[in-house]
Design a protein around this nucleic acid. Structure first.
Lengths: 205, 205
DNA sequence: AACAAAGGTTTCCAATTGGAAACTTTTCCT
DNA sequence: AGGAAAAGTTTCCAATTGGAAACCTTTGTT
């Protein structure tokens, strides 16, 4: 018997703390994923290397798959194992959409940037997209990193820029190039060409 | 037809993308957890309701436990299932970035789409960006909506498309236009011009 | 409506798991 | 060191899984 107080657990026969044996519907979940991908049992079978009968039984909770099978499932469907039994938290049903015609976004100007916020009608959204015209580099304003919560994705639409991120070498980006980074790293973008650069930005939170 | 990457996977026999069947050492992991809690197989058995022989075999990777057993394990040891096979992961620190040069993304082809996944190096990200070439509308494939968790943002880079979303009138989009919507609404995109369309997409989750 | 094809379920059986108990190794006393 | 109890491993077997194929259902076509 353990002498530790702290992390240890007590072994009282059935006095278990009863972690609410999460009512996981592995079957339901698997089926949902398969459906989302428009796959038939046959196809899913090919992808995962499992018999379609096995898949059927799993989906209908007729059997409890072994870990080995779960691995095949995840690998074949290209997902992580936890997704097999973790509910994808209820879609907060934003249930809306917002189309922004070119140039009709909400402008937001600064000395070096002309931002155009893109989907401003939707309040409850997880991403925040905007298009920015970055003025050709001006002497003074560079070197000042920004750092904030969330992640950022960007794609160069026009021009040429240099992406500075903490811990990384500056990188030159041209039309069509994109980047994704954790915004908590200091980061900053500078237009290196004579022309302005046009950037599409999407940030989280 | 789907406008999404993830919904449709190609089913080419053994051409599997081979998600690196994560070398999970479920056994090692379980043993580590048990040890951390100063439990003997006997005690762990009491807690989880499993035979100590079973536990032994699992720890030594002699058998692949069923999902049911994994649930008992997690419940008994008071942990979440993923912890059974997920390395304590030294703070995989999102703190990274990934630059994708134009055309260097990971391709994913379907009859009507040529997707190019951007930023595939980062695994732990909240957004999933990709660029898709949408082939000019073909008679048959239209009308098939997709519907899935998450939100989507898109921006037209080239061409002309029509955005169909449940509850809304079809909308024509041209270069520079963008849209944001809850992917739970049925949605689908069709190239309406003679030329292919090029779309930048960013989805959540 | 009738038929064909595709998608899904159930059956049957070999292969594997999980539990009880025997067996082996380690730990801990004296 | 010697012996006993504790911890862990292996064996044996009933119970369950996973695969092949037969068997239903649904969908699509003429």
């Amino acid at each position: 018997m353990t002498t530790d107080i702290y992390p240890s657990m007590t072994v009282a026969d059935n006095e278990q703390k009863e972690r609410p044996v999460e009512k996981m519907q592995l079957g339901k979940q698997v089926k949902a994923i398969r459906k989302q991908n428009n796959l038939t049992l046959e196809e899913a079978g090919k992808l995962t290397g499992l018999a379609r009968s096995t898949l059927s039984k799993i989906e209908n909770e007729q059997i409890s798959p072994t870990f080995a099978v779960m691995q095949k499932l995840a690998a074949g469907l290209n997902i992580d194992i936890p997704q097999l039994f973790t509910k994808p938290e209820k879609a907060q049903a934003t249930g809306r959409r917002d189309v922004t015609k070119s140039g009709q976004g909400v402008p937001h100007l600064t000395p070096t940037y002309e931002h155009e916020l893109l989907s401003t009608q939707l309040s409850q959204k997880k991403m925040m997209p905007y298009r920015s015209r970055v003025h050709a580099r001006s002497f003074d304003d560079y070197g000042d990193w920004v750092r904030h919560e969330g992640e950022e994705f960007l794609l160069i639409l026009e021009g040429e820029v240099e992406l500075y991120t903490e811990f990384y070498e500056p990188t030159k980006l041209t039309v069509g190039d994109s980047a994704y980074y954790d915004a908590m790293m200091g980061h900053c973008l500078i237009s290196t060409s004579k022309e302005d650069a046009l950037i599409l930005w999407v940030t989280t939170s």
